[in-house]
């Protein structure tokens, strides 16, 4: 297998996971990942060799996602019904408290900058420094956004209501 594929392909599962979490639609998510990979291949010769490849790919993907939002003129993508099916719903388990469906509704209610920080750090296991690079913000801003994201998710889980959070449209 060629070198580019060997380097990039291990990152594709994470890129797809992040895309689904952002878009909540499987086809649209894979379209986004495909756009990301096409951009990456086109820009490959200009890539900084010392930079982190994963952070670079996630940066491209998030920028494309934001560009797509601006084009469509809306900030909160609606959850497609199909994406919820792939997420096991444990709402029937009393110990689980809110079902995952609701947890994702809480995630969707976050402003995009907070949602991305939370996803990159908590789900993608990115270091705070790499998340800062992807989001192009200082490390301190990563920490404060992460705080706000967790605070909102916590209050959402406690109250179980989206209505208490202002949904960003």
């Amino acid at each position: 297998m060629d070198e580019i594929a060997t380097l990039i392909e291990p990152q594709i599962p994470g890129l797809r996971r992040y895309a689904v979490a952002l878009l909540r639609d499987r086809e649209a998510a894979d379209d986004l990942v495909q756009d990301t990979l096409e951009r990456a291949l086109a820009a490959w010769p200009q890539r900084r060799r010392d930079g982190d490849l994963r952070a670079w790919l996630f940066t491209i993907q998030r920028n494309l996602f934001l560009a797509g939002l601006r084009r469509r003129g809306r900030a909160a993508p609606q959850a497609g019904p199909d994406v919820l099916d792939i997420v096991p719903d444990r709402s029937s388990d009393p110990a689980a408290g809110l079902g995952l469906r609701d947890l994702f509704a809480g995630l969707d209610a976050l402003p995009e900058d907070q949602r991305s920080v939370l996803l990159l750090v908590a789900v993608e296991d990115m270091s705070y420094a790499d998340a800062a690079a992807v989001l192009d913000i200082p490390l301190g801003t990563v920490m404060s956004r992460l705080s706000r994201a967790r605070e909102r998710m916590r209050s959402f889980v406690e109250t179980g209501r989206i209505g208490l959070l202002r949904r960003v449209k």
Binding site: D2, I8, E9, R17, I86
Partner: peptide, 29 residues
């Protein structure tokens, strides 16, 4: 916060365990 993190991970993890679709293979692209 810890529980929310773990449940988000568990919920999204199946996606990252799926095989890579043909159209996203670098060779095809």
């Amino acid at each position: 916060d810890r529980e929310t993190r773990l449940r988000l991970r568990a919920g999204l993890d199946p996606i990252a365990r799926e095989p890579i679709p043909a159209r996203l293979r670098i060779a095809n692209l």
